[in-house]
Amino acid sequence: MTTDEVKARIAAFPFWYHKIELQEGIVTPGWAPINQEAYGIPERLDGKRVLDVGAWDGFWTFEALKRGASQVVAIDDFSDYLGSLDGRDRRAWESFDLCREVLGYSEWQCPRFDMSVYDLRPELFGHFDIIFFFGTIYHLRHPLLALDRLAAVCKEQLYVESAILDDFSPYRGGAGAGYAGGQMVMEFYPGRQYGNNETNWWVPTLACLGYMVKSAGFEDVQGWKLTDSPADLSQCRGFVRGSR
Results as ranks from 00 to 15, higher is better:
M1A: 11
M1P: 10
T2Q: 09
T3D: 15
E5G: 01
K7W: 00
K7Y: 00
K7F: 00
A8Q: 15
A8D: 13
A12Y: 00
F15K: 04
K19G: 15
I20F: 01
L22M: 08
Q23N: 03
Q23I: 01
Q23W: 00
Q23S: 04
Q23A: 13
A32V: 10
P33T: 06
P33W: 05
G40V: 11
I41M: 09
I41C: 09
E43Q: 14
G47Q: 12
R49N: 08
R49T: 15
R49K: 15
L51R: 04
D52T: 07
G54V: 07
F59Y: 15
W60D: 09
K66A: 12
A69E: 05
S70M: 02
Q71L: 01
A74R: 00
D77M: 08
F78W: 15
F78Y: 09
L82I: 01
G83L: 06
G83Y: 05
G87F: 01
G87W: 05
R88E: 14
D89M: 04
R90P: 00
A92D: 13
S95L: 00
C99W: 04
C99K: 02
E101L: 03
V102H: 04
G104E: 05
G104R: 03
Y105L: 05
S106I: 05
W108Q: 14
C110I: 02
R112P: 02
R112N: 15
M115R: 09
F125G: 11
F125T: 11
G126N: 12
H127P: 03
D129K: 11
F132N: 10
G135P: 06
G135K: 04
T136D: 03
H139G: 04
R141Y: 04
H142E: 14
H142S: 11
L145N: 01
L147V: 00
L147E: 00
A151R: 15
A151W: 07
A151C: 07
A152M: 08
A152I: 03
K155R: 15
K155T: 13
E156W: 10
Q157G: 01
Q157P: 00
V160M: 03
E161I: 02
E161L: 02
A163M: 10
L165A: 06
D167A: 14
F168L: 14
S169E: 12
Y171N: 09
Y171L: 15
Y171T: 14
A175H: 13
A175L: 15
A177D: 02
A180V: 09
A180H: 07
G181H: 13
G181C: 08
G182Y: 06
F188D: 13
N196I: 02
E198G: 01
V203I: 13
V203F: 06
V203S: 06
P204I: 03
T205I: 05
A207M: 09
V213Q: 02
S215C: 04
A216Y: 08
E219M: 07
D220V: 13
D220M: 08
G223F: 07
G223V: 14
W224E: 10
K225E: 10
K225Q: 14
K225N: 10
L226C: 08
D228W: 02
S229G: 01
P230S: 09
A231Q: 15
L233N: 12
C236S: 14
C236I: 10
R237C: 09
G238F: 13
F239M: 14
R241C: 15
S243R: 14
S243N: 03
R244D: 02
